[in-house]
Design a protein around this nucleic acid. Structure first.
Lengths: 245, 245
DNA sequence: CCAGCATTGTCAGGTGATTGTCAGGAACTC
DNA sequence: GAGTTCCTGACAATCACCTGACAATGCTGG
Protein backbone atom coordinates (compact mmCIF):
# COMPACT_ATOMS: atom_id res chain seq x y z
CA UNK A 1 0.00 0.00 0.00
CA UNK A 2 1.12 3.49 -0.81
CA UNK A 3 -0.15 6.39 1.29
CA UNK A 4 0.75 9.65 -0.42
CA UNK A 5 -1.38 12.74 -0.99
CA UNK A 6 0.39 13.95 -4.10
CA UNK A 7 -1.35 12.08 -6.92
CA UNK A 8 1.55 12.22 -9.40
CA UNK A 9 4.05 10.99 -6.89
CA UNK A 10 1.72 8.22 -5.79
CA UNK A 11 1.18 7.13 -9.36
CA UNK A 12 4.91 7.03 -9.96
CA UNK A 13 5.54 4.78 -7.00
CA UNK A 14 2.61 2.59 -7.95
CA UNK A 15 4.00 1.97 -11.44
CA UNK A 16 7.37 1.03 -10.14
CA UNK A 17 5.90 -1.38 -7.62
CA UNK A 18 3.56 -2.99 -10.13
CA UNK A 19 6.46 -3.32 -12.52
CA UNK A 20 8.02 -5.65 -9.98
CA UNK A 21 4.86 -7.67 -9.72
CA UNK A 22 3.34 -6.19 -6.58
CA UNK A 23 -0.33 -5.48 -6.13
CA UNK A 24 -0.77 -1.87 -5.06
CA UNK A 25 -3.46 -0.01 -3.15
CA UNK A 26 -3.35 3.79 -3.02
CA UNK A 27 -4.49 6.00 -0.17
CA UNK A 28 -4.44 9.77 -0.43
CA UNK A 29 -4.66 10.72 3.22
CA UNK A 30 -3.99 9.28 6.64
CA UNK A 31 -7.50 8.36 7.60
CA UNK A 32 -8.29 6.42 4.48
CA UNK A 33 -4.91 4.74 4.74
CA UNK A 34 -5.79 3.40 8.15
CA UNK A 35 -9.23 2.28 7.05
CA UNK A 36 -7.86 0.49 4.03
CA UNK A 37 -5.06 -1.09 6.02
CA UNK A 38 -7.44 -2.86 8.36
CA UNK A 39 -9.29 -4.43 5.48
CA UNK A 40 -6.53 -5.37 3.08
CA UNK A 41 -3.66 -6.32 5.34
CA UNK A 42 -0.91 -5.46 2.86
CA UNK A 43 2.64 -6.78 3.05
CA UNK A 44 4.21 -3.36 3.22
CA UNK A 45 3.30 0.29 3.56
CA UNK A 46 5.00 3.21 1.85
CA UNK A 47 3.95 6.17 3.95
CA UNK A 48 4.35 9.86 3.31
CA UNK A 49 4.81 11.98 6.41
CA UNK A 50 3.06 15.12 5.20
CA UNK A 51 -0.54 14.22 4.52
CA UNK A 52 -3.91 15.82 5.13
CA UNK A 53 -6.30 14.67 7.86
CA UNK A 54 -3.99 12.27 9.70
CA UNK A 55 -0.29 12.71 9.09
CA UNK A 56 2.23 9.93 8.63
CA UNK A 57 3.62 10.04 12.12
CA UNK A 58 0.21 9.48 13.63
CA UNK A 59 -0.56 6.73 11.17
CA UNK A 60 2.62 5.03 12.25
CA UNK A 61 1.76 5.42 15.88
CA UNK A 62 -1.65 3.85 15.37
CA UNK A 63 -0.16 1.00 13.40
CA UNK A 64 2.35 0.17 16.10
CA UNK A 65 -0.34 0.21 18.74
CA UNK A 66 -2.60 -2.20 16.92
CA UNK A 67 -1.52 -5.80 17.40
CA UNK A 68 -2.80 -6.89 14.01
CA UNK A 69 -0.71 -4.26 12.28
CA UNK A 70 2.14 -3.80 14.70
CA UNK A 71 4.79 -5.51 12.66
CA UNK A 72 3.70 -4.31 9.24
CA UNK A 73 6.86 -3.05 7.54
CA UNK A 74 6.63 0.70 7.06
CA UNK A 75 8.84 2.71 4.73
CA UNK A 76 8.40 6.37 5.47
CA UNK A 77 8.97 9.26 3.10
CA UNK A 78 10.02 12.55 4.64
CA UNK A 79 10.70 16.00 3.28
CA UNK A 80 14.30 17.03 2.99
CA UNK A 81 16.25 19.96 4.37
CA UNK A 82 14.08 22.35 6.30
CA UNK A 83 12.50 19.85 8.56
CA UNK A 84 15.52 17.68 8.97
CA UNK A 85 16.12 18.72 12.49
CA UNK A 86 12.48 18.44 13.39
CA UNK A 87 12.05 14.98 12.01
CA UNK A 88 15.19 13.59 13.45
CA UNK A 89 14.09 14.70 16.86
CA UNK A 90 11.17 12.34 16.54
CA UNK A 91 10.84 8.65 16.87
CA UNK A 92 9.33 7.85 13.53
CA UNK A 93 8.26 4.35 14.39
CA UNK A 94 9.09 3.27 10.86
CA UNK A 95 11.28 0.37 9.81
CA UNK A 96 13.08 2.47 7.24
CA UNK A 97 12.78 5.93 5.80
CA UNK A 98 13.90 7.97 2.82
CA UNK A 99 14.07 11.69 2.28
CA UNK A 100 12.50 13.35 -0.75
CA UNK A 101 13.48 13.67 -3.47
CA UNK A 102 14.45 10.04 -3.78
CA UNK A 103 15.51 7.84 -6.64
CA UNK A 104 12.85 5.29 -7.55
CA UNK A 105 15.54 2.71 -7.98
CA UNK A 106 16.66 3.10 -4.40
CA UNK A 107 13.08 3.03 -3.21
CA UNK A 108 12.65 -0.32 -4.91
CA UNK A 109 15.82 -1.62 -3.36
CA UNK A 110 14.60 -0.75 0.09
CA UNK A 111 11.20 -2.22 -0.53
CA UNK A 112 12.82 -5.48 -1.56
CA UNK A 113 14.98 -5.40 1.53
CA UNK A 114 12.03 -4.87 3.84
CA UNK A 115 9.98 -7.60 2.20
CA UNK A 116 12.87 -10.01 2.34
CA UNK A 117 13.23 -9.29 6.01
CA UNK A 118 9.61 -9.95 6.87
CA UNK A 119 9.59 -13.05 4.71
CA UNK A 120 12.50 -14.74 6.29
CA UNK A 121 10.66 -15.08 9.54
CA UNK A 122 12.78 -16.07 12.50
CA UNK A 123 16.14 -15.70 10.94
CA UNK A 124 18.77 -14.86 13.48
CA UNK A 125 20.24 -12.23 11.25
CA UNK A 126 16.92 -10.57 10.74
CA UNK A 127 16.13 -9.39 14.20
CA UNK A 128 18.99 -6.98 14.28
CA UNK A 129 17.43 -5.01 11.47
CA UNK A 130 13.80 -5.70 12.09
CA UNK A 131 13.44 -2.75 14.32
CA UNK A 132 12.63 0.88 14.10
CA UNK A 133 14.80 2.99 11.89
CA UNK A 134 14.80 5.86 14.33
CA UNK A 135 14.68 5.52 18.10
CA UNK A 136 14.47 8.20 20.69
CA UNK A 137 14.88 8.45 24.42
CA UNK A 138 14.77 11.81 26.11
CA UNK A 139 17.12 14.16 24.29
CA UNK A 140 18.89 11.37 22.44
CA UNK A 141 17.96 10.10 19.00
CA UNK A 142 19.58 7.22 17.17
CA UNK A 143 19.13 6.98 13.43
CA UNK A 144 19.97 3.51 12.23
CA UNK A 145 19.48 4.37 8.58
CA UNK A 146 21.98 7.18 8.45
CA UNK A 147 23.96 5.77 11.33
CA UNK A 148 23.71 9.10 13.07
CA UNK A 149 23.23 10.14 16.65
CA UNK A 150 21.50 13.31 17.72
CA UNK A 151 21.43 14.92 21.13
CA UNK A 152 19.54 18.08 21.97
CA UNK A 153 18.82 18.50 18.28
CA UNK A 154 22.45 18.44 17.21
CA UNK A 155 24.48 15.72 15.57
CA UNK A 156 27.14 13.86 17.50
CA UNK A 157 30.06 12.13 15.91
CA UNK A 158 30.20 8.63 17.35
CA UNK A 159 32.72 5.86 16.96
CA UNK A 160 31.32 2.46 16.02
CA UNK A 161 31.54 1.21 19.55
CA UNK A 162 29.86 4.26 20.95
CA UNK A 163 27.09 3.89 18.43
CA UNK A 164 26.43 0.30 19.39
CA UNK A 165 26.39 1.20 23.04
CA UNK A 166 24.01 4.10 22.59
CA UNK A 167 21.84 2.11 20.23
CA UNK A 168 21.45 -0.55 22.87
CA UNK A 169 20.70 1.95 25.59
CA UNK A 170 18.10 3.74 23.50
CA UNK A 171 16.45 0.48 22.58
CA UNK A 172 16.05 -0.34 26.25
CA UNK A 173 15.45 3.21 27.34
CA UNK A 174 14.81 3.51 31.03
CA UNK A 175 16.02 0.03 31.84
CA UNK A 176 19.24 -0.59 33.66
CA UNK A 177 21.78 -2.59 31.70
CA UNK A 178 24.67 -4.30 33.44
CA UNK A 179 28.19 -3.92 32.22
CA UNK A 180 28.13 -7.57 31.31
CA UNK A 181 25.06 -7.19 29.13
CA UNK A 182 26.55 -4.18 27.42
CA UNK A 183 29.86 -5.84 26.78
CA UNK A 184 28.03 -8.86 25.42
CA UNK A 185 26.53 -6.68 22.75
CA UNK A 186 29.62 -4.62 22.07
CA UNK A 187 31.59 -7.75 21.36
CA UNK A 188 30.51 -11.29 20.84
CA UNK A 189 30.93 -12.46 24.42
CA UNK A 190 34.70 -12.20 24.50
CA UNK A 191 35.61 -13.16 28.06
CA UNK A 192 39.00 -11.48 27.96
CA UNK A 193 37.78 -7.91 28.02
CA UNK A 194 37.59 -5.88 31.17
CA UNK A 195 34.21 -4.65 32.27
CA UNK A 196 35.75 -1.26 32.93
CA UNK A 197 35.92 -0.71 29.20
CA UNK A 198 32.23 0.08 29.36
CA UNK A 199 32.90 2.91 31.75
CA UNK A 200 35.32 4.50 29.36
CA UNK A 201 32.83 4.36 26.52
CA UNK A 202 30.14 5.82 28.71
CA UNK A 203 32.45 8.60 29.77
CA UNK A 204 33.32 9.48 26.19
CA UNK A 205 29.67 9.50 25.23
CA UNK A 206 28.78 11.66 28.18
CA UNK A 207 31.39 14.18 27.14
CA UNK A 208 30.19 14.29 23.56
CA UNK A 209 26.62 14.73 24.69
CA UNK A 210 27.60 17.42 27.13
CA UNK A 211 29.46 19.30 24.43
CA UNK A 212 26.28 19.88 22.47
CA UNK A 213 24.03 20.46 25.43
CA UNK A 214 22.62 23.95 25.35
CA UNK A 215 22.17 25.04 28.94
CA UNK A 216 24.63 24.66 31.80
CA UNK A 217 22.57 21.82 33.23
CA UNK A 218 24.53 19.46 35.36
CA UNK A 219 22.67 16.32 34.44
CA UNK A 220 23.37 13.72 31.83
CA UNK A 221 20.75 11.50 30.24
CA UNK A 222 23.26 8.70 30.63
CA UNK A 223 22.76 7.70 34.22
CA UNK A 224 24.93 5.53 36.42
CA UNK A 225 23.12 3.09 38.67
CA UNK A 226 25.59 2.39 41.39
CA UNK A 227 26.39 -1.26 41.78
CA UNK A 228 24.30 -2.29 38.79
CA UNK A 229 25.12 -0.60 35.51
CA UNK A 230 23.94 2.22 33.29
CA UNK A 231 20.70 3.40 31.79
CA UNK A 232 19.48 6.06 29.44
CA UNK A 233 16.98 8.46 30.87
CA UNK A 234 13.50 7.79 29.67
CA UNK A 235 11.62 10.20 31.86
CA UNK A 236 12.91 13.20 33.73
CA UNK A 237 12.49 11.70 37.18
CA UNK A 238 15.57 9.53 37.21
CA UNK A 239 17.95 12.24 36.23
CA UNK A 240 20.51 12.68 38.89
CA UNK A 241 23.11 15.33 39.24
CA UNK A 242 26.33 13.89 38.01
CA UNK A 243 29.22 14.39 40.37
CA UNK A 244 31.63 15.22 37.62
CA UNK A 245 29.28 17.03 35.26
CA UNK B 1 2.95 -21.46 26.13
CA UNK B 2 2.51 -18.29 24.14
CA UNK B 3 -0.61 -16.19 24.69
CA UNK B 4 -0.83 -13.61 21.95
CA UNK B 5 -3.82 -12.60 19.88
CA UNK B 6 -1.87 -11.50 16.84
CA UNK B 7 -1.37 -14.69 14.87
CA UNK B 8 1.75 -13.56 13.03
CA UNK B 9 3.48 -12.39 16.13
CA UNK B 10 2.57 -15.57 17.94
CA UNK B 11 3.88 -17.64 15.07
CA UNK B 12 7.15 -15.74 15.12
CA UNK B 13 7.68 -16.38 18.80
CA UNK B 14 6.67 -19.99 18.38
CA UNK B 15 9.28 -20.56 15.71
CA UNK B 16 12.01 -19.08 17.80
CA UNK B 17 11.04 -21.19 20.77
CA UNK B 18 10.80 -24.38 18.76
CA UNK B 19 14.12 -23.61 17.20
CA UNK B 20 15.61 -23.92 20.67
CA UNK B 21 13.89 -27.23 21.23
CA UNK B 22 10.85 -26.14 23.20
CA UNK B 23 7.40 -27.54 22.77
CA UNK B 24 4.98 -24.69 22.22
CA UNK B 25 1.27 -24.25 22.76
CA UNK B 26 -0.45 -21.16 21.37
CA UNK B 27 -3.41 -19.35 22.86
CA UNK B 28 -5.07 -16.47 21.09
CA UNK B 29 -6.95 -14.88 23.94
CA UNK B 30 -6.90 -14.72 27.69
CA UNK B 31 -9.68 -17.18 28.42
CA UNK B 32 -8.32 -19.97 26.28
CA UNK B 33 -4.88 -19.31 27.69
CA UNK B 34 -6.17 -19.96 31.19
CA UNK B 35 -8.05 -23.07 30.11
CA UNK B 36 -5.04 -24.49 28.33
CA UNK B 37 -2.71 -23.61 31.19
CA UNK B 38 -4.65 -25.74 33.65
CA UNK B 39 -4.42 -28.75 31.38
CA UNK B 40 -0.92 -28.55 30.02
CA UNK B 41 1.03 -27.07 32.91
CA UNK B 42 3.75 -25.50 30.76
CA UNK B 43 7.20 -24.49 32.01
CA UNK B 44 6.81 -20.87 31.01
CA UNK B 45 4.24 -18.42 29.69
CA UNK B 46 4.87 -15.60 27.24
CA UNK B 47 1.91 -13.33 27.78
CA UNK B 48 0.71 -10.39 25.73
CA UNK B 49 -1.00 -7.69 27.76
CA UNK B 50 -3.44 -6.54 25.09
CA UNK B 51 -5.71 -9.46 24.32
CA UNK B 52 -9.42 -9.93 23.69
CA UNK B 53 -11.78 -11.51 26.20
CA UNK B 54 -9.43 -11.62 29.19
CA UNK B 55 -6.41 -9.33 29.05
CA UNK B 56 -2.90 -10.18 30.16
CA UNK B 57 -3.10 -8.41 33.48
CA UNK B 58 -6.12 -10.41 34.51
CA UNK B 59 -4.56 -13.62 33.31
CA UNK B 60 -1.57 -12.88 35.48
CA UNK B 61 -3.73 -12.15 38.47
CA UNK B 62 -5.56 -15.43 38.11
CA UNK B 63 -2.33 -17.34 37.70
CA UNK B 64 -0.83 -15.95 40.86
CA UNK B 65 -3.98 -16.69 42.78
CA UNK B 66 -4.11 -20.34 41.79
CA UNK B 67 -1.73 -22.47 43.84
CA UNK B 68 -1.11 -24.92 41.01
CA UNK B 69 0.00 -22.12 38.70
CA UNK B 70 1.40 -19.61 41.13
CA UNK B 71 5.01 -20.48 40.40
CA UNK B 72 4.70 -20.48 36.62
CA UNK B 73 7.26 -18.05 35.19
CA UNK B 74 5.52 -15.33 33.20
CA UNK B 75 7.19 -13.09 30.65
CA UNK B 76 4.88 -10.26 29.78
CA UNK B 77 4.80 -8.29 26.54
CA UNK B 78 3.53 -4.73 26.71
CA UNK B 79 3.07 -1.98 24.19
CA UNK B 80 5.59 0.77 24.48
CA UNK B 81 2.97 3.46 24.84
CA UNK B 82 1.31 1.82 27.82
CA UNK B 83 4.20 2.30 30.17
CA UNK B 84 1.88 4.28 32.35
CA UNK B 85 -0.17 1.17 32.95
CA UNK B 86 2.95 -0.57 34.07
CA UNK B 87 3.86 2.09 36.56
CA UNK B 88 0.35 2.73 37.79
CA UNK B 89 -1.31 -0.66 37.60
CA UNK B 90 1.67 -2.32 39.11
CA UNK B 91 0.29 -5.54 40.43
CA UNK B 92 1.45 -7.31 37.32
CA UNK B 93 2.69 -10.43 38.95
CA UNK B 94 4.89 -11.07 35.95
CA UNK B 95 8.43 -12.33 36.38
CA UNK B 96 9.82 -10.18 33.63
CA UNK B 97 8.48 -7.92 30.94
CA UNK B 98 9.49 -6.56 27.58
CA UNK B 99 8.09 -3.66 25.62
CA UNK B 100 7.06 -4.03 22.02
CA UNK B 101 8.65 -3.95 19.60
CA UNK B 102 11.24 -6.32 20.94
CA UNK B 103 14.13 -8.19 19.40
CA UNK B 104 13.48 -11.93 19.20
CA UNK B 105 17.02 -12.55 20.24
CA UNK B 106 16.54 -10.74 23.49
CA UNK B 107 13.24 -12.46 24.05
CA UNK B 108 15.04 -15.78 23.79
CA UNK B 109 17.71 -14.63 26.19
CA UNK B 110 15.10 -13.75 28.78
CA UNK B 111 13.24 -16.99 28.26
CA UNK B 112 16.44 -18.89 28.89
CA UNK B 113 17.07 -16.86 31.99
CA UNK B 114 13.61 -17.53 33.38
CA UNK B 115 13.80 -21.23 32.65
CA UNK B 116 17.20 -21.47 34.22
CA UNK B 117 15.82 -19.87 37.32
CA UNK B 118 12.90 -22.23 37.61
CA UNK B 119 15.00 -25.23 36.75
CA UNK B 120 16.98 -25.15 39.92
CA UNK B 121 15.08 -28.03 41.38
CA UNK B 122 11.56 -28.10 42.72
CA UNK B 123 12.73 -27.40 46.23
CA UNK B 124 13.93 -23.98 45.22
CA UNK B 125 10.31 -23.08 44.67
CA UNK B 126 10.15 -21.04 47.81
CA UNK B 127 13.14 -18.96 46.90
CA UNK B 128 11.99 -18.12 43.43
CA UNK B 129 8.43 -17.41 44.44
CA UNK B 130 7.08 -14.28 42.89
CA UNK B 131 10.24 -12.98 41.31
CA UNK B 132 8.25 -10.30 39.66
CA UNK B 133 9.48 -7.41 37.62
CA UNK B 134 7.33 -4.82 39.32
CA UNK B 135 6.16 -5.27 42.86
CA UNK B 136 3.99 -3.12 45.03
CA UNK B 137 3.08 -3.03 48.70
CA UNK B 138 1.08 -0.17 50.09
CA UNK B 139 2.69 3.06 48.99
CA UNK B 140 5.94 1.39 47.96
CA UNK B 141 6.76 0.12 44.48
CA UNK B 142 9.90 -1.67 43.33
CA UNK B 143 10.73 -1.96 39.65
CA UNK B 144 13.44 -4.52 39.10
CA UNK B 145 13.88 -3.80 35.42
CA UNK B 146 14.39 -0.10 35.73
CA UNK B 147 15.91 -0.57 39.15
CA UNK B 148 13.71 2.14 40.55
CA UNK B 149 11.89 2.56 43.83
CA UNK B 150 8.75 4.61 44.22
CA UNK B 151 7.04 5.75 47.38
CA UNK B 152 3.84 7.77 47.43
CA UNK B 153 4.17 8.19 43.69
CA UNK B 154 7.63 9.68 43.81
CA UNK B 155 11.01 8.19 43.00
CA UNK B 156 13.48 7.41 45.73
CA UNK B 157 17.19 7.14 45.17
CA UNK B 158 18.32 3.93 46.83
CA UNK B 159 21.74 2.47 47.42
CA UNK B 160 22.25 -1.12 46.28
CA UNK B 161 21.83 -2.44 49.78
CA UNK B 162 18.69 -0.45 50.39
CA UNK B 163 17.31 -1.67 47.11
CA UNK B 164 17.91 -5.31 47.99
CA UNK B 165 16.37 -4.82 51.40
CA UNK B 166 13.27 -3.10 50.09
CA UNK B 167 12.98 -5.57 47.26
CA UNK B 168 12.93 -8.39 49.77
CA UNK B 169 10.40 -6.67 52.00
CA UNK B 170 8.08 -5.90 49.12
CA UNK B 171 8.34 -9.44 47.87
CA UNK B 172 7.18 -10.68 51.24
CA UNK B 173 4.85 -7.79 51.90
CA UNK B 174 2.99 -8.12 55.17
CA UNK B 175 5.27 -10.84 56.46
CA UNK B 176 7.75 -10.28 59.24
CA UNK B 177 11.34 -10.93 58.29
CA UNK B 178 14.00 -11.50 60.91
CA UNK B 179 17.26 -9.61 60.85
CA UNK B 180 18.99 -12.89 60.14
CA UNK B 181 16.88 -13.55 57.07
CA UNK B 182 17.42 -10.05 55.81
CA UNK B 183 21.14 -10.14 56.35
CA UNK B 184 21.28 -13.46 54.56
CA UNK B 185 19.90 -11.81 51.47
CA UNK B 186 21.88 -8.60 51.76
CA UNK B 187 25.10 -10.55 51.76
CA UNK B 188 25.87 -14.12 50.97
CA UNK B 189 25.69 -15.42 54.52
CA UNK B 190 28.74 -13.63 55.81
CA UNK B 191 28.86 -14.57 59.50
CA UNK B 192 31.01 -11.61 60.52
CA UNK B 193 28.40 -8.91 60.11
CA UNK B 194 26.41 -7.49 62.95
CA UNK B 195 22.68 -7.87 62.87
CA UNK B 196 22.36 -4.22 63.83
CA UNK B 197 23.42 -3.29 60.33
CA UNK B 198 19.89 -4.07 59.27
CA UNK B 199 18.54 -1.45 61.63
CA UNK B 200 20.68 1.20 60.05
CA UNK B 201 19.48 0.33 56.60
CA UNK B 202 15.90 0.37 57.76
CA UNK B 203 16.41 3.72 59.35
CA UNK B 204 17.89 5.21 56.21
CA UNK B 205 15.05 3.85 54.14
CA UNK B 206 12.47 5.18 56.55
CA UNK B 207 14.00 8.60 56.27
CA UNK B 208 14.05 8.54 52.50
CA UNK B 209 10.46 7.42 52.39
CA UNK B 210 9.46 10.06 54.89
CA UNK B 211 11.12 12.73 52.80
CA UNK B 212 8.72 12.14 49.93
CA UNK B 213 5.64 11.50 52.00
CA UNK B 214 3.02 14.10 51.30
CA UNK B 215 1.10 14.64 54.53
CA UNK B 216 2.54 15.06 58.03
CA UNK B 217 1.45 11.55 58.92
CA UNK B 218 3.46 9.96 61.66
CA UNK B 219 3.41 6.45 60.29
CA UNK B 220 5.87 4.56 58.17
CA UNK B 221 5.04 1.62 55.93
CA UNK B 222 8.23 0.06 57.23
CA UNK B 223 7.11 -1.41 60.52
CA UNK B 224 9.20 -2.73 63.42
CA UNK B 225 7.97 -5.92 65.04
CA UNK B 226 9.48 -5.86 68.47
CA UNK B 227 11.64 -8.84 69.22
CA UNK B 228 11.21 -10.33 65.75
CA UNK B 229 12.21 -8.12 62.86
CA UNK B 230 10.70 -5.85 60.25
CA UNK B 231 7.90 -5.93 57.76
CA UNK B 232 6.45 -3.80 55.04
CA UNK B 233 2.87 -2.73 55.46
CA UNK B 234 0.54 -4.62 53.23
CA UNK B 235 -2.72 -3.26 54.54
CA UNK B 236 -3.36 -0.08 56.46
CA UNK B 237 -4.30 -1.78 59.69
CA UNK B 238 -0.85 -2.69 60.87
CA UNK B 239 0.57 0.75 60.49
CA UNK B 240 1.85 1.92 63.78
CA UNK B 241 2.77 5.36 64.89
CA UNK B 242 6.50 5.55 64.79
CA UNK B 243 8.06 7.03 67.92
CA UNK B 244 10.58 9.05 65.98
CA UNK B 245 8.47 10.03 63.05
C1' DC C 1 2.85 2.75 88.15
C1' DC C 2 7.71 1.96 88.46
C1' DA C 3 12.20 0.03 88.03
C1' DG C 4 15.24 -2.52 85.25
C1' DC C 5 16.58 -4.96 81.40
C1' DA C 6 16.04 -5.91 76.49
C1' DT C 7 15.44 -4.10 72.22
C1' DT C 8 15.54 -0.60 68.84
C1' DG C 9 16.65 4.30 66.96
C1' DT C 10 20.23 7.33 65.80
C1' DC C 11 24.63 9.33 64.73
C1' DA C 12 29.29 9.96 62.77
C1' DG C 13 33.52 8.18 61.29
C1' DG C 14 36.70 4.81 59.07
C1' DT C 15 37.26 1.54 55.48
C1' DG C 16 36.57 -0.99 51.46
C1' DA C 17 34.22 -0.98 47.04
C1' DT C 18 32.63 1.23 42.92
C1' DT C 19 33.09 4.56 39.48
C1' DG C 20 35.29 8.65 36.90
C1' DT C 21 39.21 10.00 34.46
C1' DC C 22 43.41 9.98 32.00
C1' DA C 23 47.04 8.66 28.87
C1' DG C 24 49.74 5.15 26.51
C1' DG C 25 50.09 1.50 23.29
C1' DA C 26 48.14 -2.32 20.33
C1' DA C 27 45.19 -3.27 16.51
C1' DC C 28 42.73 -1.78 12.79
C1' DT C 29 41.31 0.99 8.54
C1' DC C 30 42.20 3.57 4.56
C1' DG D 1 52.13 5.45 7.31
C1' DA D 2 48.74 8.55 9.15
C1' DG D 3 44.79 8.53 11.54
C1' DT D 4 41.23 6.15 14.42
C1' DT D 5 39.45 3.26 17.59
C1' DC D 6 39.71 0.71 21.49
C1' DC D 7 41.49 -1.71 25.47
C1' DT D 8 44.06 -1.47 29.60
C1' DG D 9 46.07 -0.16 33.87
C1' DA D 10 46.60 3.27 37.37
C1' DC D 11 45.11 6.84 40.14
C1' DA D 12 41.59 9.99 41.98
C1' DA D 13 36.97 10.98 43.32
C1' DT D 14 33.01 9.34 45.12
C1' DC D 15 30.05 6.31 47.38
C1' DA D 16 28.18 2.71 50.33
C1' DC D 17 28.37 0.17 54.39
C1' DC D 18 29.70 -1.61 58.73
C1' DT D 19 30.75 -0.56 63.33
C1' DG D 20 30.50 1.02 67.99
C1' DA D 21 28.51 4.02 71.25
C1' DC D 22 24.79 6.26 73.22
C1' DA D 23 19.89 7.68 73.45
C1' DA D 24 15.21 6.36 73.24
C1' DT D 25 11.71 3.15 73.58
C1' DG D 26 9.31 -1.34 74.73
C1' DC D 27 8.47 -5.04 77.72
C1' DT D 28 8.20 -7.59 82.07
C1' DG D 29 7.54 -8.36 86.91
C1' DG D 30 6.58 -6.47 90.92
Amino acid sequence: MVAEDDADQAELVRRYLEHEGHEVTLAHDGRSALDLLRGRRPDLLVLDVMMPRVDGLDVCRVIRAEPRLAHLPVLMLTARSSEDDLLLGLDLGADDYMTKPFSPRELMARVRSLLRRSDRGPDAAADREARNAVLRAGPVTVDRVRHEVWAYGRVIRCTPGEFRLLDMLVEHAGQVLSRTQILERLHGSDPFITLRTVDVHVMNLRRKIKDVRPGPQDVSPLVTVYGVGYKLTDTPHDQQAHPYG
